[in-house]
Structure formats: C-alpha cells, structure tokens
C-alpha cells in the first residue's frame, strides 16, 4: 500500500542544511495499523508530511496505492490527498470560521459531491456530534474538535489515515474515546492507519510499531 524507498529530506536552516530524514525505507500493507514512535525532533511528523505530499522529499521515492506521489504536482497531490488520504492533527486544524458541518463537508465539496452536506451530517452523527453541527470550533471542547477532525478525515472514506499525535492535546479519557472512534472507523472502512504517538498503550493497539531516531528508522 505504502512504500518509502530511500527517502531523504533536507531543509535549509539558519545555520546551514539540516537532514531531517536519512534514507528511510518502509513498507506498509493495506489495512495495516502502524504506530510511529521516537523522541521529539526525530523526523516522525516530517515523514508523515512527506507521505501526505505536504513536504517535498529531497531524494527517494514514495509510492502510495501504486501512485508515485513524490513526482506529483502540487495540484495533483491535492486531488490525490482528497481522494486517498485522511489526516488528523494534534492541534485539530479545523477552519475557525467554518461550522463543524462545513468543516466536515469541505473535502466532499472539493470532490464535487452533491450530497456533501448530507454526508457531513452523517459523519458528525457517527462521531456523536449531530447536536453541534452549527457550532464553530471555538465553541467546541478539545475532544469535540478532534471528533470533528476525525469525521472530516474519514468523510471521503480514505484508503489511508495519517494521524499525528491525535490525542496529544486531550485528557486520557477523551483521548481513549478518540482512539476508539479511530479504530472503529479503521475496522469499518479497512483504512490503512499510520499513527504517531508517545502513548505506549495506543501503540500497543496497532499491528506494528516503528521507531525513528535522528531521521533514521531503527
């Protein structure tokens, strides 16, 4: 499903070039749940960004579902991301001036789906937020915002879900609720899951754990 072949990422910093990812090679099978662990600054988020096409690799190849995403143009990558990849962030990253319903509907609207809002309502229902559809993010708790983000990420039934510390800003109980929802959706849709976490118990719920340190896979 996902292949990272000798992927390198170098960025220019104030004191010269910084190597973020150092010859990463990784294979993830369809439907697999993979947790990614490592200390802060090890390159976990950067690897996820590269897979999502939000960061351009300096070298190597990334093949997702048969598509060489490292070679796609920005627009083509946006379309690919819309149709194939769902992303959940630690800081939720909802659009503050859109309601919960609008936030969930956005990717479906870009896909020109006429039933975008209907489907968005259903998605919010599935995460238990049908009573908060018209609320803005600032009017929602952290857990509610993350549930909206989950609903948005799964709205297009993506083949892959990338989650960057999805419970990092939540209390334990709420975090567990979010993880529960994520796993339920994984089971329902067969989504391949890559999950960055510091939580060992969360990592234990995955099929495989990989560790990154200093930009290298251990």
């Amino acid at each position: 499903m996902i292949t990272l072949d000798d992927v390198c990422l170098s960025l220019k910093g104030p004191r010269g070039q910084v190597d973020i990812l150092d010859h990463i090679c990784l294979q993830v099978n369809r439907g697999e749940r993979v947790s990614i662990m490592g200390p802060s600054g090890s390159g976990k988020t950067s690897m996820l960004m590269c897979m999502a096409g939000l960061e351009r690799v300096s070298a190597g190849r990334i093949i997702i579902d048969g598509q060489a995403v490292h070679a796609l143009s920005e627009d083509a990558m946006a379309v690919f991301r819309r149709d194939t990849i769902g992303i959940v962030f630690q800081n939720f990253h909802l659009i503050p001036t859109m309601t919960a319903l609008e936030n969930v509907a956005v990717p479906m609207e870009f896909a020109r789906r006429k039933d975008a809002h209907v489907a968005a309502k259903a998605a919010l229902d599935a995460v238990g937020l049908s009573h908060r559809m018209d609320h803005f993010p600032a009017q929602l708790s952290g857990g509610e915002q993350q549930r909206v983000a989950l609903a948005r990420a799964f709205a297009m039934r993506p083949k892959i879900l990338l989650a960057d510390e999805p419970t990092g800003n939540l209390d334990q109980e709420t975090g567990q609720q979010i993880v529960g929802l994520m796993m339920a959706m994984h089971r329902e849709f067969g989504t391949t899951l890559l999950l960055i976490t510091h939580d060992v118990s969360l990592a234990a719920q995955c099929d495989r754990m990989i560790t990154i340190r200093d930009g290298k896979l251990l």
Binding site: D75, A78, R81, R82, I95, T97, F110, A111
Partner: peptide, 19 residues
C-alpha cells in the same frame, strides 16, 4: 494570517491552486 491558515488546511483537504 487567517487566510494562510485556511488555505493550507484546504490544500490538505484537496483544494487545488486553481480552486
């Protein structure tokens, strides 16, 4: 700043430059 943020999130969700 708001627009930059919005546009980045929209790009994550599949918006093309033309959109």
């Amino acid at each position: 700043d708001t627009r930059v943020y919005d546009m980045v999130v929209l790009k994550v969700l599949g918006a093309r430059k033309a959109d």
